[in-house]
Design a protein around this nucleic acid. Structure first.
Lengths: 194, 194
DNA sequence: CCCGTTGTCTACCAAATGGTAGAGAGACTG
DNA sequence: CAGTCTCTCTACCATTTGGTAGACAACGGG
């Protein structure tokens, strides 16, 4: 696939992730690249196909990063930290990707199933990791899957819900972001502690 | 305003909150009520007007419930529990309302400003409450606004992100919901504890 | 030099969308 | 009873959207 196809995919990922799927038109994607809509339809024969491809790409990127974080770091809460660090970096550098994640879960149709399928093994691993740590006493006991859902929600929410941050008068600078990160880590650590 | 106007508002709130603003057409809202699109446009002269009204209604409903919870309950973490209980009840009984909240923050335009303005005093109260409790030593010290953002994200995320729950194989029954609630309460309590 | 492939474009199209104009039914009021 | 006001409807309309058909240029291989 030549470079145009990739550029289209990037742009689609960005716009689907920020403005939403329905709110993004093929014309808008094409225009952003200085290209005609029919060129987009040449590479991706329908809008749905383009969405699927964007999801696949986003899932792969997330999977790679999270996989490395899950495998590389040490035991116990350190590994939780490592995962959160990764997600937080995504939130800062590629917010549209996390936005797409949320968008997909909102669309709820086949797209979500697809994404779920791709991230499933990762989630299983994370859940069983939590379970083991609970056994070992490193983490407060509870339902591992539910705890995972909680941590996921907290991290994703903080990362994507800019509207709430505006409403709370939280400034949008690097320093503020660093404080938010520290606060998030402390909160999750405390929430998981035995 | 006669009954039709209210029915339209309810339906709009529901559809905007679940399917999203752009994905919802005036025709769809009208059809769901067995009415013509022009009747919708009679009560609300434009789609944007309808969105504004839906947001105002949702904000009022949330405000009433949260205001009561903030005022009524006891001190310390009990009050946090009370607020979470309210939000959780919304998540179960009126999920579309929380969905609208999230949708608005995604739209990000004037709508968000409007909603932010309406809920601002409530957020201020919540933040200053957290601050006082930190002073009193009931809650772990930290930036009250950031902590509020965290709790908000965790609760809203759990309440709305059904896609993630599906991906995690979390069943969708009353019993499972109750367990999720318990887990959420324990998580937040532990996350806030000194 | 010709021919198939690849990639982008112009020219359309049917359907859906938000919105306007105005008719008509019913009810309330002078 | 006449007139006005309220509400819902039919009839349109301009624009946008996702998608199809096919022309046209570049190019590589026989």
């Amino acid at each position: 696939m030549a470079r145009t196809g990739d550029r289209i995919l990037d742009e689609a990922l960005a716009q689907f992730g920020t403005r939403g799927y329905e709110a993004t038109s093929l014309d808008a994607i094409a225009a952003a690249l200085g290209v005609r809509k029919q060129t987009v339809l040449y590479w991706y024969p329908s809008k749905q196909t383009l969405l699927d491809a964007a999801i696949a790409r986003g899932a792969e990127e997330l999977h790679l990063a999270l996989d490395a974080a899950l495998g590389g770091a040490g035991p116990g809460l350190d590994r939780v930290d490592a995962v959160m660090r990764v997600v937080f970096r995504f939130a800062v550098r590629r917010p549209e990707l996390l936005g797409l994640l949320r968008e997909v879960s909102r669309l709820g149709d086949t797209a979500a199933v697809d994404l779920g399928g791709r991230l499933q093994p990762l989630l299983d691993r994370a859940a069983s990791f939590l379970g083991e740590e609970m056994e070992a006493g490193t983490i407060r006991r509870g339902d591992a899957r539910l705890v995972l859902l909680l941590v996921y929600s907290a991290v994703l929410g903080v990362s994507t819900d800019l509207g709430a941050q505006r409403a709370l008068d939280i400034p949008a600078g690097v320093a503020s972001l660093a404080r938010l990160r520290r606060e998030l880590f402390a909160f999750v650590r405390a929430g998981l502690a035995p």
